[in-house]
């Protein structure tokens, strides 16, 4: 079982229990970000007003933050703000944090989605073939491909990819979502509808921009897809091994079903159920890993936003980003739980 998979797992009874668990988890998340953002820093006021502020400015900011009140009241105020969508104002961009995140998040989602598709479309077949050939050369090779993915720092693999495919071979575009020459066209002519560059350019019919964007997304999506593939293929293999020893597999063989059908329909049908959790988890990890990959690829998404905020001491933006990623984790958990109920007749 994946270590983080069972959170809202199969034991939660009914949707009410599920909702309660979700709410408790979200509350816990907010509590932790509250502690990190408001309690641990020695002087959060100073971080906001800066060192040259006058005593009055300092006191005003302190009052505005509610820091002159008790911690419990502060937490209450914090909850009220966050739940009403107020994540504070970024000192770096001078925009509300939620607005900033709404602008940058689609780029991250686009990358993570493509990477997950790559990981699932390649990883599942690889895991299945490895399980069917357990212990043989193909199995060992697939296992090694997976272990490599577990052992390489994503930012390093990204840099090596840039070095080889962009620097040396020139097959792909460099960092960023577009060449600078296309950036101008994109900014002027392409309306932001979804925020995903491939979709927006396709909708606008700006095919040359689309093609350029494609050359830029191939490498980061490939690198992230490799990590997703490593995880998905490994888990698929172990789930498949478990299922291939079940009696219903023998039943299918007794019925004279060809081996491909036994493996890909009967056994894989049962593997899909736990695999949903794995895929959701892999997607969540890609979202979180974006802080590293987006730095390497200068990809203007949530990860880059969070790291930039980190270095300018923009704590509201960092905490806002943390809450959004955490909320995405919780939502993915919910989604995988609902899908689970849909796919597994025993859970209905």
């Amino acid at each position: 079982m994946p270590s983080r998979g069972g959170l809202i797992g199969r034991r939660a009874r009914g949707l009410a229990g599920l909702a309660a668990t979700l709410a408790a988890t979200f509350l816990g998340l907010l509590f932790v970000t509250f502690v990190i953002g408001r309690v641990i820093p020695i002087d959060p006021v100073l971080a906001i007003v800066g060192e040259r502020a006058t005593a009055e400015q300092y006191a005003a900011a302190r009052h505005a933050l509610g820091l002159d009140r008790s911690l419990l009241v502060q937490f209450g105020l914090y909850l009220r703000d966050v739940l009403s969508g107020d994540l504070g104002t970024s000192t770096l961009t001078a925009h509300p944090v939620l607005e900033d995140i709404g602008r940058v998040f689609p780029a991250t989602l686009e990358l993570a989605t493509i990477a997950t598709l790559v990981g699932v479309l390649l990883g599942v077949p690889m895991g299945v073939s490895a399980a069917v050939r357990q212990g043989r050369l193909a199995d060992q090779a697939i296992r090694l491909v997976g272990l490599f993915g577990y052992s390489m720092p994503v930012f390093w693999l990204g840099l090596m990819g840039l070095l080889l495919f962009y620097g040396d071979l020139g097959w792909v575009g460099g960092p960023g979502r577009l060449d600078t020459s296309f950036q101008f066209v994109f900014d002027l002519d392409v309306p932001r509808i979804t925020g995903a560059i491939l979709i927006d350019t396709a909708l606008a019919g700006a095919w040359d921009v689309f093609r350029n964007a494609l050359t830029h997304i191939v490498l980061p999506a490939g690198v992230l897809g490799y990590y997703s593939l490593a995880y998905v293929s490994r888990m698929t293999r172990s789930f498949m091994l478990e299922q291939l020893h079940q009696e219903y597999v023998t039943t299918a063989r007794v019925k004279g079903m060809p081996e491909w059908r036994v493996v890909w329909v009967h056994a894989l049908g049962n593997v899909l159920v736990p695999l949903i959790t794995v895929i959701a988890l892999s997607y969540a990890q890609l979202l979180e890993g974006s802080v590293l990959t987006e730095t390497v690829f200068a990809w203007p998404g949530l990860g880059l936003y969070i790291t930039n905020a980190l270095f300018s001491g923009d704590l509201s933006a960092v905490m806002g980003g943390t809450i959004v990623v955490g909320a995405a984790f919780i939502l993915l958990n919910l989604l995988s739980d609902l899908l689970y109920r849909l796919v597994d007749p025993r859970a209905r």
Partner: peptide, 28 residues
């Protein structure tokens, strides 16, 4: 050959196993 064996298994040879809890595919 495996192909011929499959044809036999489907049509002329059959087997009932011990526990229907395990011998029937749970998601079909």
């Amino acid at each position: 050959p495996e192909r011929g064996m499959r044809a036999l298994r489907g049509r002329r040879l059959a087997m009932v196993m011990q526990d229907p809890k395990y011998s029937l595919n749970p998601v079909m």
